[in-house]
Design a protein around this nucleic acid. Structure first.
Length: 274
DNA sequence: AGATCTACCTGGTTGC
DNA sequence: TGCAACCAGGTAGATC
């Protein structure tokens, strides 16, 4: 499930390979994976030169500087999306919905088994006006402790729901919500305004630490996630909470418990997280 | 407005 | 063995 660290890993892997390259052809093997005007997509992309590759929240952003400056190709990978450079001459598989041919003979594949993900082309200035993009919360790696705590002030929603709310804080999903709440010792169903200031400060530190560690480990691969070259990440090997229901807490050996918060399975230690 | 719930989608797993 | 039921989860949209 590509969350912030996975998308960041993909962007960092793609950037040196794609920057300066020109798209020579685009194949829409599943047109529904393109949001917006598919005809414009087909007409505009061939001949477009890629300026750089970046990330905002869980969006992978491929910025184009030609034909017209400021166009951006945005990918949302949702659950099972992959965006990578296959080995030369690799045939696109069943779930390769979009294929971008490049001027060096290589290709960029967009694959997505469960088809939740999408790719969308924005004209100059349009990305910033897109409702989803415009309402994104701050980047967790760029926010200070005081501003982080202020995000939750006076909010009665459960802390985990807010942590995963992209308009509150951008980039965190189920995996990193469970991991950071475990490290901070906060039960996922605690109303946000009842989390003590000290624990919010701790949560801020753990959010930044966990995300940085996960990026250093090239992300977490549960089943589908792959990086820019099709390789798995390694952070799943260090999970302390996510997916460990029934297993002993790494701190106190109490069996971890799974509950539903905001419709998501949430695993926590009933002894360490209060 | 804020909080909460459900639909969307399909491959993999579980259970009868 | 075969197949139905269930689960994964980010977001849009509806409801309270």
């Amino acid at each position: 499930m590509p969350e912030l660290p996975e998308v960041e890993t993909i962007a960092r892997g793609l950037a040196p390979e794609l920057a300066g390259r020109t798209v020579v052809a685009v194949e829409l093997r599943r047109p529904a994976s393109v949001q917006g005007d598919a005809a414009l997509f087909r007409a505009t992309l061939p001949g477009s030169r890629i300026a750089d590759v970046g990330r905002r929240a869980k969006l992978l952003l491929v910025r184009l500087d030609r034909p017209a400056g400021g166009r951006t190709l945005a990918f949302h990978l949702k659950m099972t999306g992959r965006c990578y450079l296959p080995e030369p001459d690799a045939a696109p598989g069943k779930h390769a919905h979009l294929v971008f041919a490049l001027d060096n003979g290589r290709s960029l594949f967009f694959e997505d088994a469960r088809t939740f993900g999408y790719c969308r082309l924005f004209g100059p200035g349009e990305l910033e006006g897109w409702d989803f993009y415009r309402t994104l919360g701050p980047e967790p790696l760029e926010i200070g402790a005081a501003a982080f705590a202020a995000l939750f002030a006076g909010r009665r929603g459960r802390i985990k729901a807010l942590l995963m709310d992209q308009t509150v804080l951008a980039g965190i999903g189920n995996i990193y919500a469970d991991e950071t709440l475990f490290r901070a010792g906060i039960r996922p169903d605690t109303p946000a305004d009842r989390v003590p200031a000290k624990k919010l400060k701790s949560l801020h530190g753990h959010v930044q630490a966990v995300l940085a560690e996960a990026i250093a480990a090239c992300g977490s691969s549960i089943s589908d996630y792959r990086d820019a070259h099709g390789n798995a990440g390694a952070f799943q090997n260090t999970f302390q909470a996510y997916g460990r229901a029934g297993a002993p807490c790494v701190r106190c050996a109490t069996p971890l418990v799974a509950i539903k918060v905001a419709g998501r399975t949430s695993t926590y230690c009933p002894h360490c997280q209060r």
